[in-house]
């Protein structure tokens, strides 16, 4: 019974994630790296439309994997994929900020400087300046898909529902995709957590789930805050 339910849930999840990702579903677990994008597609936080739409038009051509029923990548595989592919879309800050020391503490409410009705969220200079730098950030693990994780979604507030698991649930804007080191996956927790790692900013699609993320953290370690 448990297996059947698990299977049904996985099927639902698969459908959801495929819908979320607009990815070209392929039955195999083949991973194709993102092709190098032409320099005119480099994203900056102050870009005016339509470059983003142009970029958007190109994204579906990037071959993605079908969402697997179970994690088909080895632990750390998603991290390696993301590291390999997300540098192409690095934004540049309007007024770069220099930091005295690393890691720099950054909070979720420092991610965005505002929201433009027509252009969506506007990235803050602090967030963009920290692209590629070591940071410390606190938040909550979004209710995950499985107990042992090599990547998860970090949220500002504790989410009551797993947005992966329900079509009605919405991801909040304040999220970051966290990749744990290959060798040290973590156990799921509902406690607040603190992460140290390297921040990456720029639109990227997760190779495994097809989930779009703007902010990623390649974590070195995670602490549970009591």
């Amino acid at each position: 019974m448990y297996h059947l339910q698990h299977f049904l849930r996985s099927v639902c999840l698969t459908a959801l994630l495929i819908a979320l990702s607009a990815c070209n579903a392929e039955s195999s677990a083949r991973i194709t790296p993102l092709p190098t994008l032409p320099p005119n597609l480099t994203r900056t936080p102050t870009l005016t439309l339509p470059p983003l739409s142009t970029l958007a038009a190109q994204l579906p051509t990037l071959a993605a994997t079908a969402t697997p029923l179970e994690n088909q990548l080895p632990f750390g595989g998603a991290r390696a994929m993301a590291l390999a592919t997300d540098t192409a879309l690095q934004p540049t800050p309007r007024s770069p900020i220099a930091f005295d020391q690393f890691p720099v503490a950054i909070k979720f409410d420092e991610f965005y400087s505002g929201y433009s009705i027509r252009q969506g969220l506007l990235l803050s200079d602090k967030l963009v300046s920290l692209d590629g730098k070591r940071v410390m950030i606190e938040g909550y693990m979004a209710p995950p898909l499985k107990p042992e994780l090599d990547y998860f979604v970090l949220t500002r507030i504790q989410l009551s529902f797993c947005p992966f698991c329900s079509t009605a649930a919405d991801w909040p804007d304040d999220i970051a995709l966290v990749y744990m080191p290959e060798a040290s996956p973590v156990q799921a927790t509902d406690r607040p957590i603190r992460l140290y790692g390297t921040l990456e900013v720029g639109m990227n699609m997760d190779a495994e789930t097809g989930m779009f993320s703007l902010v990623r953290i390649y974590a070195e370690r995670m602490e549970i805050i009591n």
Partner: peptide, 23 residues
Amino acid sequence: GARRFIPKAVEGSRRADERDVFA
């Protein structure tokens, strides 16, 4: 509901496609 009018690739969008519905 502006977030449903902007293409998926724009941060803050809730669309699942790349249509710029405002445009």
